[in-house]
Design a protein around this nucleic acid. Structure first.
Lengths: 343, 343
DNA sequence: GTGAAAGCGCTAACAG
DNA sequence: CTGTTAGCGCTTTCAC
């Protein structure tokens, strides 16, 4: 149906090889004259080279696969954008796949990536792949992979880009304590997820630093959504009215927490200080604006892609894990209670 | 390097054809016995069929391309998810591309899709493609396309899924008027964008319905972000302090508007009513929750994909444009001023 | 500088 | 039921 290199060759009265050299911008092996003639012809007749066919012979697709739990979670659009920008700058196109943190879907997508011979994969999962055969296939395929944000046991041999969640959480929770909170709840994300556990470590360390004894009742696991943050906060406060600080597992949860506090007539930060995590755009637009641990989301995506492209280009070098910096964004949901009360 | 169908064939002592029949689940033409033998072998040695190679011979890639302005705009994640879900359910993988509404990038991506021989394209652009040659290539390629949300002049021959922006805006603005506003500003999106102009029509109709004369000073065009909504509102109110209602071009803008109103100590809705558009998650979480025109974003994506897959399967049928329903989500940023004042 | 030929991994008749 | 053959559209030696 569509024009092929063969058509162009015969139309131009040259061989396929020559046309091939031209469309690949092969600098040598073709005279300026014929090159221009062919280029002009291609333009006139509207020939679009079939990259699929090229890919099969050169064994590279200029395509990378990206698996994330869900684009609808506000954390991801920025990292996706980082990945895509870097990919695009280097001539790669990206397959975007939402796994819903469902192992079955992750497996399916990974296998599809293998079938489609993507040049590399960036993946953010909730935990383990749990499929010995798949991981074997992946290893054997020799395809470069970089892990994003959450470590994966079966894929521990691959490099990744992370943030020091424990350190960041420790810093944030310490700030809460410094500003007068001592009964701090951790309205966390899903149990057993790497980042959730790391942040728990940080939370515990901060308490320990100040000699505050950990109260397990103050920890609640659940979904990464507003509703879940809202419900768990109401639940938490009904049982533990003494709570005067809340560390939310992510900003989306924090927004739900804030909603609950508003309904319960708790003043933020006077009655209860609130700390989020991520620094999604909306966290700064709430009333009050939420203090949060800012993650370099765009950069995480961008760096992951850079790393991946580097391993694609040189499969022999072993990339080292990369840890990006977080910064505590102090806004109005936290603050020194004593100072405030004195006003 | 990797195993090929040929390797499997020789290992199993059969021909490539037989292996091909097995991996394609071709129901006939192969005995249960050899089928199982081959399947077992494939599993043991870890062979992953090369879909690239398959694609070139069967002329289908099971891939679709999706172009949107920017994943980071909260409107898109849901539509992307709708597209992806439908694609995935039907065995397709999607290329996600962010164009930033930049014609050059749109052209580049479109050309890449042609080169990679995607089976279909879903596109949301800001306006015209402005590239006669490209559109010719697209037409000649005979590739199915569906337009998403915004009509495109050069691609008017393709079907799309839309919302009746004019009707929706008219309904929303009418609601503002019914509740006592008469000096209503339209803090719009980017000028000349299809949806922006359609909503303007609705705004004008609503005014006309009630005999309110259009004041052009009340219309402001600008970016789809919080900052822009914020700045334009301050500007607008400084020149036109009589304004008692604002129709924001989208919810992101509305959030910026709200921020400005808060700073200016304008009570919402008592002093100024606020109406948004889209119904992104956060619009319901603001204080006060924003009344907005709810668009079925996920469904728009899902239906666009359905439509596309239908045209892929049957290139001869001509799909009709599809208009999805909006609903006015009445929340607390609007309300009857007189009733409120009487309280 | 250019053409011819072989081959990439797979599918699709066509025989038998 | 299975093997053989001829491509699919392109790249890549290797001669000339």
């Amino acid at each position: 149906m569509a024009l092929t290199i063969k058509d162009i060759a015969s139309m131009a009265g040259v061989s396929k090889g020559t046309v091939s050299r031209v469309i690949n911008n092969n600098p040598e092996g073709v005279s300026e004259e014929t090159r221009e003639k062919i280029l002009k012809l291609i333009d006139e007749v509207g020939y679009v080279p079939n990259k699929m066919a090229r890919s099969i012979t050169v064994a590279e697709t200029k395509t990378i696969g990206l698996i994330i739990p869900d684009v609808q979670n506000p954390f991801f659009p920025q990292v996706i954008r980082g990945v895509e920008d870097c990919a695009m700058e280097n001539g790669y196109t990206v397959f975007l796949c939402n796994s819903d943190s469902d192992i079955k879907k992750e497996q399916k997508y990974l296998y599809t990536f293998l079938e489609k011979r993507v040049d590399g994969i960036i993946i953010n999962t909730s935990g383990d792949l749990n499929d010995r055969k798949l991981t074997t296939l992946i290893h054997k395929s020799n395809i470069p992979i970089v892990i994003l944000d959450r470590k994966i046991k079966e894929l521990s041999r691959y490099p990744g880009v992370y943030v020091d969640n424990a350190r960041a959480a420790r810093e944030g929770v310490s700030y809460l304590i410094e500003n007068g909170s001592s009964n701090i709840a951790y309205i966390a994300g899903v149990k057993d997820v790497y980042t959730v556990e790391e942040r728990l470590k940080g939370y515990c360390m901060a308490l320990e630093d100040r000699g505050i004894i950990l109260n397990k009742k103050y920890i609640s696991y659940g979904g990464y959504n507003i509703q879940s943050g809202y419900e768990r906060t109401r639940e938490m406060l009904s049982h533990n009215p003494e709570i005067d600080g809340i560390f939310a597992g992510c900003d989306t949860i924090a927004i739900g927490v804030l909603k609950a506090l508003r309904e319960l007539n708790k003043k933020v930060p006077d009655d209860i200080q609130l700390l989020g995590f991520d620094n999604i755009t909306m966290s700064g637009e709430m009333v009050p604006p939420i203090t949060t641990v800012s993650q370099p989301m765009y950069d995480m995506g961008y760096q992951a892609a850079r790393m991946l492209l580097a391993s694609i280009q040189d499969k022999t070098i072993h990339q080292a894990d990369q840890y990006l910096e977080t910064v505590l964004m102090i806004r109005e949901s936290t603050g020194n209670k004593h100072v405030r009360k004195e006003i």
